[in-house]
Each structure stands twice: as structure tokens, then as C-alpha cells.
Design a protein around this nucleic acid. Structure first.
Length: 778
DNA sequence: TATAGGCATACGACAACTCTCGC
DNA sequence: CCGAGAGTTGTCGTATGCCT
């Protein structure tokens, strides 16, 4: 009996047979490599008459056996034929032939993943196998905790002083690896603190040896999918060095062009940039996901500044000591980031049941889908097929109504009680049993709000059942972690939250297997119903409703107390079915809502609240948008503070007047007038060329690459005509070059006028008044 | 190889309109 | 008086980035 922690899995074809290889480590830290030759590839065919299935063949591919099974498809019983084939690569070929006989299903599940699902194995968890030599006879999942061996790495490349482009013709000049007990910097020119090799080629060979010597389970880099590993691979190819990091001696394999991935057999390669950006990005403050910014936010550590632009000339001059230090520092930060996100990454991997390599690269929809597939297998549900192109297009044409937003009345109000439904969409799904298979059942009757449909009340649905289990589990975890604070439990609760919050979007996602417009429409219809219900109840109780969006409701307490606010909470909750629950987030001493530009109507999704500690919670305003001019953001934020906290109209007016004045006199530094915008496509794809596109083109003219996601920073110069003809890159802008009047009328005034008008101050009085002062000075 | 829809805002593209000027 | 061209105004579409 062998017990080990599973790190990676992968298959090869040997002598016409598929062999799975499992890579891991036993409790003593010894590497384990086992093979399983007894797992056969298969797919399903749903049909009335299975005749001909056994005879399917093409070239070397053939069917080995066919078994009849009673399964469920979208929660309805069906007879399915399990068609075993001789090779994993036979599946896509023979399924095409099988389409003449019936509907094929589960014909697109990668072989190694199929193995994990069918055996119920969870990577990074304990596995118990009965073996003969290195061959697995039986295998099953156990539970245990293991901390894998991680190694961080980072490369530095030669860049000529005049160019910044990635060019594989330039050599790699330095490679660093870091683990707390293993640190090395390799280079091929004399340098302090580094291991100096004879040539780039020797350094690359040494790098492979260095990694192999440490024998990590995880190799991690920052943006290593798109940069470090493809670069290493390109240089190795050129210098004829095998980049054989794989545990089976295989080379690193890169896949994809726009979204590159680099895989190493037997070792989980984790690109932390990808994981952090995708999973934690939403909740992070930073605008840019550079290693420096991310470390700053997550670790509170900043790396030492080094002028990377000069790395080329420093290398030519042989003065690279500081780059050695920098290189190692980068790997150390990467390693520490890995430690920081490890609990979340581990929990996500365990929940979804995919190898770490895949789990660390999951999109939200994949997270849901793979979890559903794991659950479907255990509940005898067939995986619905992925939609074809036509079906996807049809789905994209469908549009479901979303959440309800209450139109606020512009004004400043005191004592705002903020309520929201806890996990509204998931709890609606559970309390109303919303699932693709429970829609309009024969056994029940009824009608949901706004739609002529109903959901079964007797039989537990598949999707609603899965979510119910997750919600219950999350509640248990939360209770446990309240008792004693634990990083693991917190990470698990977070992973569950991410998963739960993704289900609704997944059900409406055109490429989803478990797509259902009916479910999406029902969920949002119920949500609108419940929010409007709170609003109606609040009004009936004599509260002034100030705002509400999707799952929230904000009430002005007026003469009522916090005690009344809590009583109201109980009143609403009394009428709610489990697990639905309204929560009172907090009572805020003050709040402001404004009108939309040029109208008297209240603006939705733009408001600010002052909490009891005196902090602002700003939503939607320019202050929280990166594509507004810095000065407009700063001034607006200060203004909101003055309005809500100081309650000083004079001070508010003075702030804006002074700022207008400074802009007119060109007194503000360049960084205050910078506008940053992210380009969403390459510059040639724009139909309409706005200022940020013009700025992006300026970058391209300087030889810089602009791709989807590039952030451009620019200012607007003085002059006539279109704004786009007056942009200048922030980095090239000179003091005195910006157009103060532009910023006053297009940035500052729009950002403050609707706040000022709540106080009864017209924007004209602000700009005119300063004009008078300048005239007086004149 | 985008989880969803709702919303505000800025600016360009384009058409319609006004104004000016020369004949 | 008319017609050309410049300039202005208004509407619509594109684009970004936020909120829940």
C-alpha cells in the first residue's frame, strides 16, 4: 500500500495503450511516480438502438466494449451506452461516427481529468494506492495535509538601451531561483553574489540542473506563462539546450498564442500573475498588476528600485552587481506571494478537483463547470454537451432582464441604514429550487413573479442541490472560523464564496454546459421581487427609502433609531424562506445622492456614505474611476468629505474655486492632470478614435507594444479642435503644456457640479468668481 | 477561448442646420 | 438672390469602467 500526495497527472501512449502517470510525494518527502494501465477511455451515446456501436472503427481506432447504463440527462432518466475505445485519441474520431447512431455525450473530457473524476481523486490531497512494482492496481482518495515544495524563479534578459521590445534574439543574462533553503543567481559575467558560468548556454544547462537538484513540486514565476518560460524555451532552442524540467525528462511545453500557458510534466507550474489577476484582482485596490504593486498590496513589501532600462548598458559595462540582488529579490517576492495566496489556491484546487496547474488558471466559468462535472459524476448525471457555434450565437442573442435599481432623490441625508440580502442569488436558487431540470414540472403548479413558469417543489433539483450543499458547507465553515481564526478556513470560505457567486453568471453564460435562460430569468425576477418587497415594507413602516440596487435597500432613519432599524430587519426576515436572509450592514451617519448630468433625475450607482469612523464609502463617482483626470478625482473626494463630514458649504466652494484657479494658472503638476485608460483592443480595431486611442498610437510610434489591456496615461494639451489631436503621453508631458480650461470644463466641473448643486451652488458661480479674481488681479 | 445585466459619462462620427461671403 | 464652405448644434453610436 502506497500513500502519497498527488501533484500532477498526465498520460502517454506506449505500445498502443494509454498509460496514466501520477506524480506526487509521500509523507517523508520522497518523490513518487506511479503508472496506471487499467483505465480505459470512453464516451456515452444516448440512443434507442445501440446496434453498430460495437463496430465503430477508423484507422487504428476501435471500440473495445459497450455497456448499457441508466443515467440522468438534465435531471431526466435516459438510457445511455458507455462506449469504451482503445485510445484517448480515438474518442474525438469515433464520436463523429457515433453521431449517426445517437447523441454523443462526455466525448470532450480530457483523459487525465476523466481519470481524476472517475476515481474521485483530489490533487494536493492524499491518495492511497495498491501497487505492484510501479503499477497501480487500485486507487482511492484519502485526506491529509501536505505542504508542497515550491521554488520561485525569474529571468533577466538583455535589452539594448534604445529598445524595450521583447525580442528572443537577445540573450538571457541572469536567472534566479528562490526557496527559503535554496537560493541561487546564475549569470555569465563576473558579478557579486552570483554563480558565474562561461556562457549563456552553460547557464541554461545549469538552470535545468539547479531545478532538478531541488526537485520542487511547484515551480512558480510572475508572468512566467507569457514571458519567462517561453523566453527560456526560445533561447534553449537556439542554443540547442534541452529545457528538460519534466519529471519524465520531457521539455517545457508552451500552448496558445494570445493566452500562453507553459506546462511541465510532473511539476505544477504556477503563474502567480495569472492567478492573482484573475481571482484576487477584483478585490484588490491596485490598478496595475506589476510584481511591485501586487507585493506592495498583498505583502506590504516594496522591491528596491532598479533602472531596468539600463540593464543592457550595465551588462555591456560589466556592472551588474545590483541586478543580481534585484533578480533574487524578485524571486523572493514571488515566493512570498505564493505563500500568501497558497491557502486560497489550495482550497480552490481541492474544491474543483483539478491538478494545481489547471486550477491556478481557471476562469470563473470553468471553476463552476468543473465543480458541476465532479458533482454530476457522483450523482449519475451526464454532462450536457458544450454548445456548438450556432447554439452559442443563439444564446448570445437572448437577453435576460437583470437586477432592479431604485432611482434616488438627489440630496444629503442623515443616518442611512444599509440592508442587503446575504448571497441573494444563491439563496433564491436554493429556496425556490431553481435548476434546469425543475422548470415547469408535471407534478407541481404555480407561477413565479413576472413570468409564466414554475419550479418543482417536490424533487430536489441538481443545480439547486449543489448550491444548497455549498451554502450549508460555507455556513459551517464560517461558524468554525468565527470560533477560532484560521487561515485555512478563511481561505476555504473565500473560495466557496467565489464559487457560489459565479453560479448565476455561469447559468447565463453562452458557452456553459448547464446554460439556462429560464433559470436566469427566474433568479432575477425573484431578486427584483424581494428587493421591491423590502422597499414596500419599509415605506409602510414610515421609513424614507433612499436607494436600492439588486440586493440592497438603504433607508433614511430620520426620527427612528438603530433599534427601529433592527426591528425592521426582524419583520422582513420573519417572512423569508430558508436560507434567505436580509442583513443590516451598518448605519451610516450621512450619505449623498446626486442628479445625472444635465437633468434633475437622481443618478443610479453613484453615491457616497460616511461611516461612523469618518471614512467615505464612494461608489461610482469619478473619484473611483481610473479614467478620470487625477485632479478631478482628488477634488471630488475632498469635496465629498467636506460635504458629508464638515458640512461646510463655504469650505466646499473655496476648495473648488481654488482648484479652478490653480488649473487656470497652470500651477498643478503634470501628475495631477494625467488620465489613465485601459485599451480594450489593438489600436487598429477601433471604429471611433478617442483620446486614449490617440495616446496609444503615440506609444506605438515610440516603438512600444500596445495590446489589449495596456494602460495608457496621457494629458490634454492646449490648442484647437478635437481632444484626440491634443493628447500627449504623460511621460513626455512638460509642465505648462496642459490645457487648464479643458480640465476645468471637461473634468473638474462635471465631477463637482452635481455635488455642489445639492448644496444649492451653481457651477457658473464657481468658474465666474475665479474669472473675476483673475480680472481683479489684472 | 469574456460568469451576468444595469448604468453614467465622454467623445467621435455624422447629419442637419445656420451663418457668412462672394457674385 | 443663390450656392459654397465654414462653423454650430444635435443625435446617435462607440468605448470605458464602474455597481451589485
Amino acid at each position: 500500500m502506497t500513500r502519497f500526495f498527488l501533484v500532477d497527472i498526465h498520460y502517454t501512449i506506449e505500445a498502443g495503450k494509454a498509460i496514466l502517470r501520477l506524480y506526487g510525494r509521500d509523507g517523508k518527502g520522497k518523490p513518487v511516480t506511479l503508472k496506471d494501465e487499467n483505465f480505459e477511455p470512453y464516451f456515452y451515446v444516448v440512443c434507442d438502438d445501440p446496434a453498430g456501436l460495437e463496430d465503430l472503427k477508423e484507422d487504428d481506432f476501435h471500440v473495445t466494449k459497450v455497456e448499457k447504463e441508466e443515467k440522468l440527462l438534465l435531471e431526466k432518466p435516459v438510457t445511455a451506452y458507455k462506449v469504451y475505445v482503445n485510445l484517448p485519441t480515438a474518442v474525438p474520431v469515433l464520436r463523429e461516427l457515433a453521431k449517426d447512431i445517437g447523441q454523443t455525450l462526455e466525448d470532450d473530457v480530457l483523459f487525465a481529468r476523466r481519470y481524476l473524476i472517475d476515481k474521485g481523486l483530489t490533487p494536493l490531497d492524499l491518495v492511497e494506492a495498491e501497487v505492484e512494482g510501479d503499477s497501480i492496481k487500485t486507487i482511492k482518495a484519502e485526506t491529509g495535509t501536505y505542504t508542497p515544495k515550491g521554488l520561485a524563479f525569474d529571468i533577466e534578459t538583455y535589452t539594448p538601451p534604445d529598445r524595450k521590445e521583447i525580442d528572443y534574439d537577445n540573450p538571457i543574462i541572469m536567472i534566479a531561483v528562490y526557496a527559503p533553503d535554496y537560493q541561487k543567481v546564475l549569470t555569465w559575467k563576473k558579478a557579486k553574489g552570483a554563480e558565474v558560468l562561461d556562457s549563456e548556454k552553460a547557464m541554461l544547462e545549469r538552470f535545468v540542473d539547479v531545478v532538478k537538484a531541488y526537485d520542487p513540486d511547484i515551480l512558480t514565476g510572475y508572468a512566467s506563462d507569457g514571458f519567462d518560460l517561453p523566453y527560456l524555451l526560445a533561447r534553449c532552442k537556439k542554443l540547442k539546450v534541452p529545457l528538460a524540467l519534466g519529471k519524465d525528462g520531457s521539455s517545457v511545453i508552451t500552448k496558445g498564442r494570445s493566452r500562453q500557458e507553459a506546462r511541465i510534466t510532473g511539476i505544477a507550474h504556477v503563474d502567480l500573475y495569472k492567478f492573482i489577476r484573475r481571482v484576487l484582482g477584483r478585490t484588490m485596490k491596485t490598478q496595475s498588476f506589476s510584481l511591485n504593486n501586487v507585493s506592495q498590496e498583498l505583502l506590504g513589501e516594496k522591491k528596491q528600485e532598479v533602472d531596468l532600462d539600463n540593464i543592457g548598458s550595465a551588462w555591456d559595462a560589466g556592472k551588474i552587481d545590483e541586478f543580481v540582488e534585484y533578480n533574487l529579490q524578485d524571486t523572493k517576492l514571488t515566493y512570498n506571494l505564493m505563500l500568501k495566496v497558497w491557502p486560497s489556491l489550495l482550497e480552490m484546487t481541492k474544491i474543483v478537483g483539478l491538478p494545481l496547474f489547471d486550477a491556478s488558471r481557471l476562469s470563473f466559468s470553468q471553476f463552476v463547470e468543473w465543480y458541476m462535472m465532479k458533482k454530476a459524476f457522483s450523482m449519475n448525471e451526464l454532462f450536457p454537451a458544450k454548445p456548438g457555434y450556432r447554439e452559442q450565437t443563439r444564446r448570445m442573442g437572448q437577453r435576460a432582464q437583470g437586477g432592479y435599481v431604485y432611482e434616488p432623490e438627489p440630496g444629503v441625508y442623515d443616518n442611512i441604514a444599509v440592508y442587503d440580502y446575504r448571497s441573494l442569488y444563491p439563496s433564491i436558487i436554493v429556496s425556490h429550487n431553481i435548476s434546469p431540470g425543475t422548470v415547469n414540472c408535471e407534478c407541481c403548479k404555480g407561477k413565479i413573479p413576472e413570468h409564466d413558469m414554475h419550479f418543482c417543489k417536490k424533487k430536489q433539483g441538481f443545480v439547486s442541490g449543489v448550491i444548497k450543499e455549498l451554502l450549508d458547507y460555507r455556513t459551517t465553515i464560517k461558524k468554525q472560523s468565527q470560533k477560532n481564526k484560521d487561515v485555512v478556513l478563511e481561505a476555504r470560505a473565500y473560495a466557496l464564496k467565489v464559487l457560489l457567486n459565479s453560479f448565476y453568471g455561469y447559468l447565463g453564460f453562452a458557452m456553459a454546459r448547464w446554460y439556462s435562460t429560464q433559470c436566469v430569468e427566474a433568479i432575477t425576477a425573484y431578486a427584483r421581487h424581494y428587493v421591491k418587497d423590502v422597499i414596500a415594507k419599509a415605506e409602510k413602516q414610515g421609513f424614507a427609502v433612499r436607494y436600492g440596487d439588486t440586493d440592497s435597500c438603504m433607508l433614511e432613519l430620520g426620527k427612528k433609531t438603530e433599534k427601529d432599524a433592527k426591528k425592521f430587519l426582524q419583520l422582513v426576515n420573519k417572512g423569508l424562506a430558508d436560507p434567505m436572509e436580509l442583513e443590516l450592514e451598518d448605519v451610516f451617519p450621512a450619505g449623498i445622492w446626486v442628479a445625472t448630468k444635465g437633468t434633475a433625475q437622481g443618478a443610479k450607482k453613484r453615491y457616497a456614505l460616511l461611516d461612523k469612523e469618518g471614512n467615505l464609502k464612494i461608489r461610482g463617482f469619478e473619484s473611483v474611476r481610473r479614467n478620470a483626470a487625477v485632479i478631478a478625482r482628488k477634488t471630488q473626494q475632498e469635496l465629498l468629505m467636506i460635504v458629508l463630514k464638515d458640512r461646510d458649504k463655504e469650505k466646499a466652494v473655496k476648495l473648488v474655486k481654488d482648484t479652478v484657479d490653480k488649473l487656470r494658472k497652470n500651477e498643478l503638476p503634470i501628475e495631477d492632470v494625467v488620465i489613465t485608460t485601459q485599451v480594450q483592443k489593438t489600436t487598429d480595431k477601433y471604429e471611433s478614435v478617442g483620446p486614449h486611442v490617440a495616446a496609444a498610437k503615440l506609444m506605438e510610434n515610440k516603438g512600444r507594444t500596445v495590446k489589449k489591456g495596456t494602460i495608457v496615461a496621457y494629458i490634454v494639451k492646449k490648442g484647437e479642435g478635437k481632444i484626440r489631436d491634443r493628447v500627449q503621453l504623460a511621460e513626455d508631458a512638460r509642465q505648462g503644456e496642459y490645457d487648464g480650461e479643458y480640465y476645468i470644463t471637461n473634468s473638474l466641473v462635471p465631477a463637482v457640479e452635481n455635488i455642489l448643486s445639492v448644496l444649492g451652488v451653481s457651477p457658473e458661480s464657481i468658474t465666474e468668481a475665479t474669472q473675476q479674481t483673475t480680472l481683479a488681479g489684472f
